[in-house]
């Protein structure tokens, strides 16, 4: 029996390392330690061994079993390792570029708009939208622009033919014409007519001027406009908002100042200058960045608000101009050409 055990172990030592697949392994394992395996058969012969030899023989059998188990485990491990190695394939070259598409990018005008909206949201402003095709009432009349004001001239504003019908923009009077809005201030009127004060909104959007395209002018561009209506709103509140916006956007070194100006729908009215010498390509002490003022009582009367109760301010600026200032871009047309070498610089 001892000889049989040794022969069996020798056979296993020779056979098991050569196994390559899990199936072969399972078959081999069955042949040795399965219910009808050779080793199992030997174990069954233990009963025939004389009583006095049993302890020594039992020790031998146990040792043989341990050896066999170790060999089987090793064989299985080898097969599992080989399987994993086969799954992995050859080693990679980490320096090869990924063939997948690179990251997407957000347009700089969107970045600036969203950043402004984020800053304004912290100050309680929510975003409102209005149509780009407007009527004369919302774009001009309600903002106290007289009928023969030069800004309304067909030389400066895009109009639609009198036959034009826009299904989701209603005219106030049948005689007024449809036009492409020249400023986002039209949304002020829509917001005030729709809601009740207090109001704190920002309206970003696309506007149109009939203008020659060059490095600083574009047939359409974008504006962002803030409107705040409440009790006891002051000039100082307006200044506080502007200081907050531009310090948040351009850094704490940014200073703003007011210059008196004239807009038909605010009184008093100001132009806003920025001092931000830390920005690229800024070589002037003060840069004009937008217009603002206290909402004119006549505008409130037009939308049915009592100007003795309600007061407010409005502020508007060009987004292209702001983006050009922030990033040091010197030609407005780059925003509309969409060269990826341009777009990829801002995301």
């Amino acid at each position: 029996m001892q000889a049989t055990l040794s022969a069996l172990l020798a056979k296993a030592t020779a056979e098991l390392p050569a196994l390559r697949t899990r199936a072969d392994f399972e078959a081999a394992k069955a042949r040795y330690v399965g219910p009808h395996g050779e080793f199992t058969a030997l174990m069954k012969q233990m009963g025939t061994v004389p009583k006095e030899q049993r302890p020594a023989m039992g020790k031998l059998v146990n040792e043989a079993k341990a050896q066999l188990t170790t060999q089987l485990d090793a064989a299985l491990q080898r097969i599992a390792d080989a399987e994993i190695a086969a799954q992995l394939g050859p080693a990679i070259d980490p320096t090869l570029p990924s063939p997948d598409t690179g990251p997407g990018t957000t347009h700089p005008l969107t970045l600036v708009r969203e950043e402004m909206c984020r800053i304004l949201r912290k100050a309680g402003f929510t975003v409102v939208e209005g149509p780009e095709v407007e009527t004369e009432y919302y774009c001009f009349d309600a903002l106290c622009t007289p009928a023969d004001h030069p800004a309304r001239d067909a030389q400066d504003t895009f109009y639609f033919p009198e036959s034009a019908r826009f299904g989701n923009v209603a005219k106030k009077t049948p005689a007024e014409k449809y036009l492409l809005r020249t400023h986002t201030s039209s949304v002020q009127i829509r917001t005030m007519l729709k809601g009740e004060p207090p109001i704190r909104v920002v309206s970003p959007g696309r506007v149109y001027r009939r203008d020659t395209s060059d490095a600083t002018h574009s047939a359409n561009f974008h504006q962002l406009e803030c409107l705040y209506v409440d009790r006891n709103v002051t000039v100082r509140d307006l200044k506080a908002l502007l200081d907050y916006i531009f310090a948040s956007l351009l850094g704490k070194d940014t200073v703003t100042r007011f210059r008196p100006h004239y807009f038909g729908y605010t009184e008093p009215s100001f132009e806003v200058d920025l001092s931000a010498k830390h920005l690229p390509k800024v070589n002037k002490d003060w840069i004009e960045i937008g217009g603002c003022g206290m909402v004119d009582p006549a505008v409130f009367e037009g939308v049915g608000y009592d100007p003795n109760v309600w007061s407010g301010y409005a502020f508007g600026m060009g987004l292209e101009r702001l983006a050009m200032l922030m990033y040091g871009i010197d030609d407005i047309r780059y925003f509309y050409q969409n060269d990826l070498r341009f777009l990829k610089q801002f995301a």
Binding site: A123, G124, T126, V127, V128, E129, R236, K239, A240, R257
Partner: peptide, 24 residues
């Protein structure tokens, strides 16, 4: 002098109603 308008902390009562326009 409009350049003498003093600055202040930007503040105002919170307006709880209203979210950004669905378009935005």
């Amino acid at each position: 002098g409009t350049d003498r308008v003093p600055s202040a902390i930007c503040s105002g009562p919170a307006l709880a109603d209203g979210d950004d326009d669905p378009i935005a």
